[in-house]
């Protein structure tokens, strides 16, 4: 197999080419090309089952693509692991697990610790400060099942913060959370962007997407459009992504300008 140059598209935070992912040979992502520049707050949007979670899992090496390649800041994920943070969907774990909020946040450091080493005092300090950043310092010793959905989501976010990454992937961090949590989360995301980090978020709410994010990836099995929000947030693109479901949305808020070229950044 011919190897490309060691660093491929190093100027892009995320570079995906010709990605196809299949479950049991049924493709759910078809020939995706994505280029996300560094330092943006990007949303992945698309209807249920569009493959948004699948895309993130493929990027993080949790699924093996049947075609295509993925680079983060010019290197494959296996080499960039320590520079990537991940917030899985909240429903993907059992919150009745016997542990505290602080302990869950500490898990974000397990990768840096490596095998066998246990987290010590330094780890505890880092985890506590991350909890503080999400406004959860008072809940550090709380059993996680006693937290509200929004609080659990903030714990997950704090766990990603301690990863101290360059690129973050978050799967629906604002689904089903209270208004306070949503404010805290969006504030943090913006802060991360100010620090020059790239944040890529699966977002479910079309009403807020244009105000929160400056970069969009519209996905529905294939990539419908990508680019600056101002350029790709159009009725035409949304209709293409959501099919008939768009009728359910308040189209008044969506600009009716014709779409710009979708494939360029």
């Amino acid at each position: 197999m011919p190897q490309p140059t060691p660093r491929h598209e190093p100027n892009l935070a995320l570079h995906i080419e010709d990605l196809t992912v299949a479950y049991n040979d049924k493709p759910v992502l078809w020939d995706i090309d994505i280029n996300v520049p560094p330092g943006v707050l990007a949303a992945i949007i698309g209807p249920n089952g569009a493959g948004k979670s699948t895309l993130i899992k493929a990027v993080l090496g949790l699924l093996k693509p049947s075609a295509g390649h993925i680079y983060l800041h010019g290197e494959p994920y296996a080499k960039q692991r320590r520079r990537v943070g991940y917030v899985p969907q909240r429903s993907s774990v059992d919150w009745d697990f016997p542990t505290t909020a602080l302990d869950v946040v500490t898990m974000g450091l397990y990768g840096q610790l490596g095998w066998l080493r246990r987290p010590g005092r330094a780890a505890r300090t880092k985890a506590l400060s991350a909890l503080e950043q999400v406004g959860m310092a008072d809940y550090a010793e709380r059993q996680i099942s006693q937290l509200s959905g929004g609080q659990q989501q903030r714990v997950f976010l704090a766990r990603a913060l301690v990863q101290d990454a360059q690129v973050y992937f978050m799967d629906e961090p604002m689904a089903g959370v209270d208004a306070t949590t949503e404010r805290v989360i969006i504030g943090l995301l913006k802060k991360l962007r100010e620090q020059g980090k790239t944040v890529i978020v699966v977002h479910h709410d079309l009403q807020t997407v244009a105000t929160y994010f400056d970069f969009l990836l519209l996905l529905n099995v294939r990539l419908i459009a990508q680019g600056k929000t101002s350029e790709v947030y159009t009725a035409e693109n949304l209709r293409a992504a959501y099919g008939g479901q768009i009728a359910l949305l308040q189209t008044a808020q969506i600009p009716q300008t014709p779409p710009t070229v979708a494939e360029t950044v």
């Binding site: 899992k57 949790l62 774990v93 898990m107 397990y110 990768g111």
Partner: peptide, 18 residues
Amino acid sequence: KEFKLLTFDPQFAASLGF
């Protein structure tokens, strides 16, 4: 530590390279 993470959140564990 590895078993705990694997039990609580296997996907996150895998994303960290375990």
